[in-house]
Design a protein around this nucleic acid. Structure first.
Lengths: 223, 223
DNA sequence: GATGGTCTGTAACATATGTTACAATATACG
DNA sequence: CGTATATTGTAACATATGTTACAGACCATC
């Protein structure tokens, strides 16, 4: 087993050791080592290959006009770099990729990877599941921003919870987490919830929330 | 040629007529007709098939708690329904789908479609390109919301334009369009731009903008 | 049952943005 | 050249949200 970590990756998961070995045999791949701080990819560079972090840790980092950098995310084994953009038209790295610590990256040319997927339905299915989930996540996230007020976001969130039609739901995260999810300040969320309760739209008991005025709530998601 | 419209679809584009015919022969497909106002899919329903609009027009529509509906988007030939979610884990329709006018939908089971893709690299590549572009679009869109102020959004937008590093860029849309893109009110954007000019960060001449203070601009994208 | 930590409610104040309305420009088109 | 149309600049005002700070409620662990 060359890269045992692959078995846990979203893209190679569900395949057996010998199957992964066979796939690797049938394709050109290489492994590159990056020392701490060295650059694995530059923003704007064309993406020609799938890169999977085998060991160590890398980060995506943006540089703004004045040269200031800001970290976007860490990518750890066994995850892939820019997998959601890989096959886009004129795919380019959206960020600089830099090794946090000494790291190994598995590199497979994207055309070779496409050939692999065409030859193994589970591999194909893995990738499709991965990217569809990503698209779904992003699109759900974006939907919240279409509600311009905090009350609107919260009302929409409530309506998306299981049991909303029964008029009683259970919130599954803390206000802290919710406020981050909405992209608003925590006290502002608390105030919005308080006002909605005062207005008789909902009644709050810990994480149990009763939806008292469905019509009123739905007005919030529209205005 | 059974469905000439397919040649123009993102998923079947680039294939010749005989190739498309051959693919259709090798798979179970069916065509369903929907009369004006009838429901092609319900929100929450499991997505078992790829559906492509062959003729007519359908719309995605959300229903909120009080039963009020709001249109999300129209889907016209030769586009597909929920293609970006099709292979997600527990894929469900995110919206109700309703025929605007009498319409025909081509229906291919998603497992069959996966088999088709595995057998034809262009078909596979088409789908991958489609969904990667979608993910890229969504993620770019979402990035703008991470800048909490209008000035931050605008500064980031400027820095993403070609020639930004040269200190001179040309805006490619009207303030009206930009404000919609940012999700803000048009006069607010005008005010923000005016203030940035007063503060000596930029100088504006019609659609030509000079970036005078890169360091100052980059501060806006961080605070 | 005490103690420390996290989560929640609330307040006062600052500020960014929305709203509405109108004037001043550009641009298109005859 | 002149008129209509779209685009942009500007103003006054209303309001939603952010910020900061603190107090009370819950929860675990000892």
């Amino acid at each position: 087993m060359r890269f045992p970590v692959l078995k846990n990756s979203p893209l190679f998961g569900g395949l057996s050791d010998p199957e992964i070995e066979k796939l690797l045999d049938s394709v050109n791949y290489r492994v590159r080592y990056f020392h701490t701080g060295s650059v694995a990819a530059l923003a704007g560079e064309e993406i020609s290959s799938l890169m999977i972090v085998l060991s160590g840790s890398v980060r995506g980092e943006m540089t703004d006009l004045s040269g200031r950098t800001m970290k976007i995310e860490d990518i750890n084994p066994p995850h892939a770099l820019a997998a959601a953009v890989l096959f886009g038209g004129g795919a380019k790295y959206p960020v600089n990729v830099i090794a946090n610590i000494d790291s190994e990256l598995l590199i497979i040319n994207k055309h070779d990877y496409l050939t692999l997927m065409a030859g193994d339905k589970r591999l194909l299915s893995n990738y499709l599941t991965f990217i569809c989930n990503k698209a779904q996540f992003l699109s759900g996230r974006l939907r919240f921003h279409s509600f311009h007020t905090i009350k609107g976001k919260f009302a929409h969130y409530l309506s998306s919870l299981p049991g909303a039609s029964s008029g009683k739901v259970r919130v599954d995260r803390s206000q802290q987490e919710l406020s981050e999810y909405f992209g608003v300040a925590r006290p502002s969320l608390a105030r919005a919830i308080g006002e909605m309760e005062q207005d008789g739209l909902i009644s709050v008991n810990r994480r149990e929330i009763r939806l008292l005025d469905l019509k009123g709530l739905s007005k919030l998601t529209g205005a």
